[in-house]
Structures are given as structure tokens and as C-alpha cells.
Amino acid sequence: MTTTRHVLYLFGSAAPPVLDIATVVRDAQERGFDVCLGLTSTAARWLAPKLAELERLTGHPVRSEYKLPGEPDAWPKADVIAFAPATFNTVNAWALGLTREFVVGVAAEGIGKNIPMVAMPCVNAAYVRHRQFERSIAELRAMGVTFLYGEGGFVPNQPGQGKPTDYPWRLVLDAAEDVCRA
């Protein structure tokens, strides 16, 4: 009996929890996902020494840049996109359709392609006081993104009080599994 693995595009931006992305990839693989890892340009710079290891782990190129016109797609088609950690900048750019970053562009296009999406921010309480942040979350939710923020999701901490090892990655992978079961 052959089982089909669901393809998970795991996208991360430059917030401290992204430094533990290899553990998240392994957890997703243990749940049966074929993981394709995409990063914002800054997250890719943070993880530069680990990119070759991450490519071996996923079996796919780690992407942070758009492909050139005419180049074939390097990844299989996504069954679900999980965007975490999503920074203040990433959340706002995505909601506004500002697609300078590869992962934001894929996520924005994924809305139009009806690819199920799960997102969880990683921002501090000072950022969330900016009115655009709540607007952006509302906009993404209105476009069908499951946004894990607040009760039952990510709860912001005070500036400088973050604990990256406490980031609730499990919630993102649980939600991605739920989407694939639906």
C-alpha cells in the first residue's frame, strides 16, 4: 500500500524561532510531510551556514529568491503553506500584496490558487500596537488564511522578553495537518 505524502511549503522570516527550523522540518517529516523550505532574504542570511544541511534534510533546494523566467519549478506543488515565524514586516507586506520577498510572493499568489494556508506571527507587544498589524491579520483571515494569533496561537511578549524556544511550532504543524485532513 502506497501513501501519498502531503507537500508542505514551510516559510519563515527573520525572527529568532527560525534558527530552530531544522527541528521543525524533522517534526513535519515525522508527521508525513514532504517539506519545501522557503525563507525571507534576511532569514536565509541568518541561516546561511546551515542551508546545505537544510537542503539535505528536505531533499529540496532552500529558496529565498524568485526563479528566473523559463526556469522549471524546483519544488512539487504545495498541498499547504505554513508561514511561521511571520514578522511584523512579513505580515503587513503579505496583506498589502507587496511581494519583494519570494516567500511573500508565493503566499500571496497561493491565496489566488486556493492553497490552504496557516500562519503564525512572531512579534512583540510594541509592534502589535501599530494599527496596521491588526488590519493585516484581519485582511489575511478574510482571504482564507488560518492565522494563529491570540488565544490558541501566538501571544506577543514585551520587547526583549521573548523566549524563542517557547515558540509554539506544534500549533502550526497541527493546523497544517488539520488542513490536509479536511
Results as ranks from 00 to 15, higher is better:
T165I: 06
L54D: 12
Y127V: 02
A142T: 11
K67W: 03
A138V: 09
A182N: 14
P116L: 02
F11A: 13
L96H: 12
P49M: 10
Q161D: 14
G160A: 11
E139L: 12
T4Y: 09
A95T: 06
V24W: 06
A142K: 13
G160P: 11
F147T: 02
E139T: 15
G32Q: 12
E55W: 06
Q132W: 11
L37N: 07
A125S: 15
E71H: 10
T23F: 01
V18W: 01
I111K: 05
T23P: 00
E53I: 01
Q161L: 13
K50C: 06
D166L: 13
V118M: 01
F33C: 10
S13G: 13
E134V: 13
G160V: 07
V7Q: 04
L98S: 10
L51P: 02
L140Q: 08
R129Y: 00
K77E: 15
D166R: 13
A182L: 11
E71N: 04
Y66I: 00
L171Q: 10
T58W: 08
M143R: 15
L47H: 08
K67A: 14
L68F: 12
K163F: 04
E65L: 11
T90R: 01
V80R: 02
A82S: 05
G97P: 05
W169C: 04
F133D: 10
F11Q: 09
P85Q: 04
C36S: 05
V155P: 01
F83N: 00
V172Y: 01
L10Y: 03
Y66A: 11
D27G: 00
R131Q: 14
V18K: 06
V123M: 11
G112H: 06
L37K: 07
A28G: 12
T99P: 00
R56T: 12
F11V: 01
T146I: 02
M120D: 02
M120L: 05
D27S: 15
V25E: 09
E53L: 11
P156M: 10
E109A: 10
E177L: 15
A48E: 15
A44P: 03
A78Q: 05
R45F: 13
A14N: 14
H130Y: 12
Y167Q: 03
D166Q: 14
E30Q: 15
D34F: 04
W169A: 06
K67P: 07
R26I: 15
P85H: 02
Y149H: 14
V123S: 07
Y167P: 07
G97W: 02
E53C: 00
